[in-house]
Design a protein around this nucleic acid. Structure first.
Lengths: 144, 144
DNA sequence: ATATATTCGGATAAAAATATCCTATATTAA
DNA sequence: TTAATATAGGATATTTTTATCCGAATATAT
């Protein structure tokens, strides 16, 4: 579904959001531990997320990553996914064909249509705020 | 969604089915051309499909691959997918967590539930016969 | 029987994804 | 202003996925 990189990205963003909700900025080391990801690799991913304006970063002591509370309700899963994996999840042919559309469909095009629509809808309507609230309340988890 | 290997597998099986429908056995070379896949790599994939009883093979001149007509209605997309990609599509956590279930869900577990159910249902109910019929009629295609 | 055409299977190679290391740069606090 | 701590980013390494090569085994037709 998503690349491993994208899985890390989503988990990291949710964790950062859950801490930002408590007005806490979090460092790379902490993030890597809390989402169980390789630290250096996670750093690379976070850089991409910063460049895509999904998270903020600040250097130096007391530095780290955060997300403004106001942004949490306007950032959706879809943004994280397309920042990391591009739009193949949204547009790509399930059988890997370059030319696959309504007028020239692959054999599974129609079978996948509604599933892809549902997926798209879900990704575009699930906000960071929702996802982080589960972490806050302890009803969802990010590692193991 | 699927690995590239699995995309080739599905395309190959559909092509073999569409030819078997016309009582034609098809060789590796022909398959690779018709589904636009690397020949040697496709050979490896076909071996796995043979081992999983999804397609038949026969050696020697006039040899090649085929699928009994009777089998076409009992082989489903799900079988091809799990033979090549395993059952990660069916069971795997969207965020890559090892432990993710109803009692210990990841943040997107519930959002993905219905989508995954729909996907599973579709894969388990779409038969090879259906997929091959689109190729026969020319309404669907396997390359480009 | 022999030549030929085909799949089978092991070894290897290339490419892409994932992961690490190290130095530079910025920021804070003392 | 200096020491300490954090992210940034380039270079490199490892692992996984994708792809190729080649000889062996097998079956067919002549």
């Amino acid at each position: 579904m998503f690349s491993k990189t994208c899985e890390y990205a989503i988990r990291a963003v949710i964790f950062i959001a859950s801490e930002s909700y408590k007005d806490k900025r979090v460092g790379l080391k902490d993030i890597a531990v809390k989402i169980d990801s390789p630290e250096a690799f996670t750093a690379k991913i976070l850089q991409v997320l910063v460049k895509n304006d999904i998270i903020n970063s600040s250097k130096g002591p007391t530095g780290g990553f955060d997300i403004p509370k106001s942004a949490m309700t306007t950032i959706y899963l879809s943004q994280i996914v397309s920042a990391i994996d591009g739009d193949s999840v949204f547009n790509g042919c399930a059988l890997g064909l370059k030319e696959c559309s309504e007028i020239q469909p692959c054999p599974v095009h129609n079978s996948f249509k509604s599933i892809r629509e549902d997926l798209k809808l879900m990704l575009c309507s699930t906000s960071l705020a929702e996802l982080a609230s589960g972490i806050k309340s302890g009803s969802t988890h990010l590692r193991l």
